[in-house]
Structure formats: C-alpha cells, structure tokens
Amino acid sequence: MSSPVREAMLARRSSPKVADAAPDDAEIVTLLEAAGRVADHASLRPWRFIALRGDARNRLGDALAAAAGLDGEHGARLAAKPLRAPLLLAIVAVTTPHFKVPAWEQEAVAAGVAHQLSLLLDDAGWGVMWRSGPHTRHPLVAEMHGLADGERLLGWLYVGGVHDGTRSDRGPEVGAASRFSSLP
C-alpha cells in the first residue's frame, strides 16, 4: 500500500535544530487551509494559530522564565529557548460550550490541525518540531499570547529551514501491531 500521503507521513521527522529561514504568513495560511480539514464534530473550528517572530519570541522567553520563577543564568537559559527557531506557531484550542462537543474533543481537533500542519510544513521542506513544557498553560504565558477565556495553549510548532544532511531517510519503526487490537 503506497500513496503520496503515506510516504510523506513516513518521511516526517522532528527537526530540533533549524536554520534561520521560515515560511511567510501567506504560506502558513495556505497550509492551514488544508490542515484545517480534520474531523471536526459540529464544524466548530476550535483552533487558531499565532505566529511569533522576532521580539515576540523574546517576550515569550521572558514569560516562560517568569512563570518558572527563574532569574539569573537559569532564567536566561529558559528565556532563550524560543530563539531556537525563527518562527514559532502557537497552537491554541478555542473551546466553546456545546451540548454535543465537550472541551476535550475541541482540544483534540486543535491538536489534529497542528499535527497536520506539521506534516504539511515538513512535506514543504521546512524543519518542524512541536514543543511544550510545564509552563505552557501558565497564566503569564497565556497573557503574553493574548488568550481569551476558553482559549488554551497546546504548545508551539518551532519552524525553520532544514540544515543539509540533518534529515534521516527513515525514523524508528512505530511498532503499530503492538498498539492495535480488536474486540471480539
């Protein structure tokens, strides 16, 4: 069984180190048009993305350090983490009360869009890595992103150019058979 989609999924790799190039907003929106086609009970579109470039990454680093209660060398080290990529895409679940669709399901849709976006970015030749951490949902981090009530940060896609020779042809096998069963 071979298809371009399956091959792209098998080729996908997280890129912990990326170069300074990054897609522009128009390319991100084009990719989101496709990524946003995930299964979405009641078509709520419970997601949005926020691009962080330039100084916005510094403000995020400061918010992370403040959320952790760190200053000095440890705070500076944490504050520098958002500078690992030229573009961070904050993944935001936008949940609304709905009689058929609980908040967890709306968050799952947002995560699905983020994953599909990461696949599309990878397929387009960009390096991508989904990052989160213990302070992802801290109020100071939410405030830095300008999140409203009902919005929850799920993490960030770190996006940048791919360094030559840093991608492997294939990652470790998933071992899907050990994670699959059927009920009688």
Rank of each mutant, 00 (worst) to 15 (best):
M1W: 13
S2D: 10
S2E: 12
S3L: 01
V5R: 01
E7A: 09
M9S: 00
L10P: 01
S15Q: 14
S15H: 12
P16F: 06
P16C: 02
V18G: 09
D20E: 15
A21E: 13
D24H: 07
I28P: 01
I28R: 07
V29G: 03
T30G: 06
E33T: 08
D40V: 04
S43W: 08
S43Y: 12
L44R: 15
L44S: 00
L44K: 07
P46M: 02
W47A: 02
I50Y: 12
A51P: 15
R53A: 15
R53E: 13
R57F: 05
N58S: 08
R59H: 15
R59G: 10
D62Q: 11
D62T: 13
A65C: 04
A65G: 05
A66V: 02
A67P: 04
A68Y: 09
D71Y: 01
G72D: 10
H74F: 13
G75R: 06
A76I: 07
R77A: 08
L78I: 13
A80G: 12
P86C: 05
P86H: 08
P86V: 08
L87M: 09
L87C: 12
L88V: 05
L89W: 02
L89K: 00
V92E: 02
V92T: 11
A93D: 13
T96W: 04
F99D: 12
P102N: 00
P102C: 00
A103T: 15
Q106E: 04
V109M: 07
A110M: 02
A110P: 00
A111G: 10
V113L: 01
H115D: 08
H115R: 08
Q116I: 00
L117Y: 05
S118W: 05
S118D: 06
L119S: 03
L120Q: 02
L121T: 11
D123C: 00
G125Q: 15
W126A: 03
M129T: 14
W130G: 05
W130P: 04
W130H: 12
R131C: 02
S132F: 05
H135T: 08
H135S: 10
R137N: 10
H138K: 11
P139K: 05
L140I: 11
A142M: 10
E143L: 06
H145N: 07
R152I: 14
R152K: 14
W156N: 03
L157S: 01
Y158N: 08
G160N: 01
G165A: 07
R170W: 01
V174E: 14
A176G: 06
A176D: 05
A177L: 15
F180N: 03
